[in-house]
Computed example of a mutant assay.
Amino acid sequence: MSLQTAHSPARRATEQLMQVRGLTMSYGSGAAENKILQDLDLDVRAGEFVSIVGPSGVGKTTLLRCLSGLLAPKAGTISVGGQQITGPHPDLAVVFQDYSRSLLPWMSTRENVAFPLQGKGMGKAERNALADRNLAAVGLAGQGDKYPWEMSGGMQQRVAIARALAYNAKVLLMDEPFASVDAQTRFDLEDLVIDLHTNLGVTVILVTHDIDEALYLADKVVVIAEKPATVVDVIETNFGEVRDQVETKADPRFAEARARILHRLRDH
């Protein structure tokens, strides 16, 4: 299935795409100030799949919202393609954890996917055709006339992913997108995202507290911990383009990396 995309397939990315320097975020001020992130640095190459893992409540979603431009940090810089991010940006698309609230229930799945494309000046026929192609890419061919409430949770999340892909952004940001589905559906969605990443070459940044998920999906795992949170480790997975839920997780390197992450989190 052919998709409109500006990306070329690659897991062996080399070109620097996103750079984060000294990212600091807090809420409140004075004695009531709650520091969330402190002097956090991050580098992401074009076409790379990066997982950001850390314990619940450490600030992963806050970090992702800063990266997306939805939340302005107190200090530090975020740039994509050399351009500093100061607000929502056309090169960034977000898939939220709460897919049921991110989809508009009065719109069909096709309309939900096509809706953000209105801002790109596309005609209705072009928007709908692009929506149908991206629905097919996530395994929902022929489902464009259904409404979100007629679909399972896993299917709704596929619609949310199709919407992000149709926007054709350079970076796909995912906020624990599989946390609300059952285990088998989670595995299916993980494999779907791997296939999409490999076939389209889109850059993906995923935040999760699931260590196995972080390792299985990513080229690089960034571990954040401490209060306020900062990067405490970076692990290159080197599992190759082809991943398998059983074989990859049985790889001795997988167990070694998991133990390394657990130690980092326990020590901080």
Rank of each mutant, 00 (worst) to 15 (best):
V242L: 05
I78N: 07
L37Q: 04
W106S: 13
A93T: 15
D210L: 12
R243S: 14
S108L: 09
R12H: 09
A13R: 15
A6K: 15
T208H: 04
G30R: 11
P177W: 03
L71T: 14
T109G: 12
R258S: 00
P88E: 07
V231W: 11
L104V: 07
V44H: 08
Y216S: 08
R110E: 15
S180M: 06
D191N: 04
D188R: 05
D191Q: 03
H7S: 07
M122F: 14
Q184E: 15
E150C: 14
G139N: 02
S108P: 03
K249A: 03
L92E: 13
S100G: 02
V231G: 12
L135N: 02
A229E: 01
S26H: 13
A179K: 11
D39P: 07
E111G: 10
P177T: 09
L117C: 04
N199R: 12
S29K: 14
R21T: 04
F239A: 01
E226Q: 05
S68A: 15
I194G: 02
D210N: 15
S79N: 07
I52P: 03
D188Q: 06
Q19D: 09
R12D: 10
E236S: 03
A32L: 08
N128K: 09
A31T: 09
V50D: 04
V94E: 11
Q84A: 12
E236T: 03
P9V: 00
A255L: 12
V204L: 08
G240V: 03
L173P: 13
G139E: 01
D145K: 14
E176M: 09
L172Y: 04
T77G: 00
S29W: 13
E190M: 08
S100E: 04
R65T: 10
A255V: 10
D233T: 02
Q143H: 15
D244H: 13
P105I: 00
K74G: 10
G28I: 06
A46I: 08
S29A: 14
Y27R: 05
S108K: 13
V232A: 08
A169N: 10
G47N: 07
K249P: 02
I211L: 14
P90T: 12
W106C: 13
G59A: 04
Q184R: 15
C66I: 06
A160H: 02
A114K: 04
A214F: 07
G123Y: 03
K227E: 11
Q245D: 07
